[in-house]
């Protein structure tokens, strides 16, 4: 099989969309987990509430995987016959992967900071956990928007 530069670029885009937000989410979930473990070490009853907060920065990784998957489907990788993309087409796919890759990475970490602060709320006023969750979810908006941008770009691309 002849491999084109376009295909390489498209796969690079997919890989980037998976690993950058993935790294961000891993770091983010880890950060909140650390803070949550601190709370639970003193007060084991707070497990379920802190777990929800910990899950929040994990979505960016999912969004990234999702984008990567859409790319794979788009370029026929999953069907088994990879489309012969031109270099420009490859760049198009790569460009479409950029929003979720970059925003996913950074927003996961920013969200983790907000969620870790939310863990502090749980430590003191467990009944106010919803407010902590809402603060963290505000950050997620930008990951959702960039996911939307990436996916709409990808859906819009048509390869012969």
């Amino acid at each position: 099989m002849e491999v084109t530069l376009g295909q390489v670029l498209a796969l690079l885009g997919a890989a980037m969309a998976v690993f950058l937000p993935g790294v961000g989410s891993a770091k983010g979930v880890g950060m909140v987990g650390e803070a949550a473990a601190g709370v639970v070490a003193e007060d084991p009853n707070k497990f379920s509430q802190t777990l929800i907060l910990q899950a929040l920065p994990g979505t960016q990784g999912i969004y990234g995987l999702l984008t990567g998957f859409v790319v794979m489907q788009k370029i026929g990788l999953l069907g088994g016959n990879l489309l012969p993309l031109t270099t420009y087409e490859g760049f198009l796919v790569f460009a479409a992967c950029l929003p979720i890759s970059v925003v996913g990475l950074l927003s996961a970490i920013a969200q983790a900071r907000a969620a870790a602060a939310g863990v502090g709320i749980v430590a003191k006023k467990p009944e106010e956990v919803a407010k902590g969750i809402t603060y963290a979810a505000m950050v997620e908006t930008y990951a959702v928007l960039s996911l939307l941008a990436s996916i709409l770009m990808l859906f819009g691309l048509r390869f012969s």
């Binding site: 950060m31 650390e34 803070a35 949550a36 473990a37 601190g38 709370v39 639970v40 070490a41 003193e42 007060d43 707070k46 870790a116 863990v119 502090g120 430590a123 003191k124």
Partner: peptide, 16 residues
């Protein structure tokens, strides 16, 4: 700041 995540979590409980 991130180095103190675990300790801060514990301390937020202890503060109360």
């Amino acid at each position: 700041d991130e180095e103190f995540l675990f300790a801060s979590g514990r301390i937020k409980v202890l503060e109360s």
